[in-house]
Structures are given as structure tokens and as C-alpha cells.
Amino acid sequence: MTQSTADVWLLEGFNDPVHGAQETFRAVLHAMSAPGQVVALPSPNERPDGISDAATAFLLTLADYTTPIWLDPALARKDVQAYLGFHTGAPITDARADAIFALLQGTEDHLSLNEFSIGTAEYPDRAATLVIEVETLTAPATVRLTGPGIETESMVGIGPCAPGLWEALIKNNALFPLGIDVVFSAPSGVLAVPRSTQIEVL
């Protein structure tokens, strides 16, 4: 247990917590129901360094004391933990398997999606949702997405794209109705690839 956070400078969250969270929730719902589409999110007043506005808004809205968050080691800093702890009440966990949300850096060379919860047959909703930070959601398309929420197809390119990422997500789709859900976040907003989405690498 941390004894005190008195020495950490707390940053502000949404200017208006209720409406900020409502707007974000609506936008994330849209992103999840239309995989591959880039959806803009409201920006919080302040956020810890190294995390995008979109990822911050996402966690401020969806995380609470019942949803442990796993942080990429590069982001598992005291100020990030204090910020998320203060605004969401969510515990930070070191164990990937315990995480309901996870914040990962897409720029890493070996991005691993392993060990996160894929849910159970009785409770597929207990799977983790991964927020993967990338620089752009509008890079030249490298995959074709099809499936629920996509009328014909959705051509997607994210950058940078860690090697093996799409292959891992193809395997993840095969687990449906189990599997993790992924939300890519970038300065322009978020783009969701839920477990139900079929992926074809071009």
C-alpha cells in the first residue's frame, strides 16, 4: 500500500466529469460498433505525459474501482498511477491476467497480447480491453476488416505497427465469442478492433 501521494502533483481530468464521460462513452460505443472507423474523443483538461488525450479520455470514462488496469512498464510511473487512481479509483495491477483494461505502447518492438483475460464461456464479458497507443490511425492500409458493424469492408492502416500484431489479432478472432477487444488510440481519436472483427492482412 502506498503510504501517501502527498508529493504527487495531481492533474485535472475532464473539465466537466459527467459530460466528458458521457460524450466519450457515446463515442467509444460508436467506435466499438463500427470497427475500423476513426472516432474523435473529447480531451481532458490535463493528462500525464506520454499518454494520448484519447487513451486518457477512454480510461477516465470506463475505468473504475472494479476494473484493474495494467500499464505498459514504460507508463507505469507514479504520476500516471496517481492520476488514474485519483480520477477513476481503479487499482493498478502488475498481473496481466487480472487486468480489465490495459494501456500498451504500440511503438514497442515486441508487443505481446498474451496472458490478458479472454473471458470464460459463462462470462465472455470478463475479457480485457486493450488500449494500444499508436502515432497514427490513418497510415496506408495494411489490413482489410470485415464482420459485424462493417457494411462491406474497412481498410485500416495504423502506424507504427508492431510486428506480428495483426497475426495475433487474427488468432484472437478465432477465439470468438472469447477473446480480447482492442482499441487503438492516437492524437486523432480511437479505432476499435473488437474480437468479432475478421482481419485479412493485405
Binding site: 500500500m1 502506498t2 503510504q3 501517501s4 501521494t5 495531481l10 474501482y65 496517481a82 487512481g85 485519483f86 477513476t88 479509483g89 481503479a90 487499482p91
Partner: peptide
């Protein structure tokens, strides 16, 4: 109660 931001 233990507030997350206080830790005690």
C-alpha cells in the same frame, strides 16, 4: 474507507 488517492 481507503481512497485510492490517499492509499491509507
Amino acid at each position: 474507507f481507503v481512497p485510492e488517492e490517499l492509499g491509507f
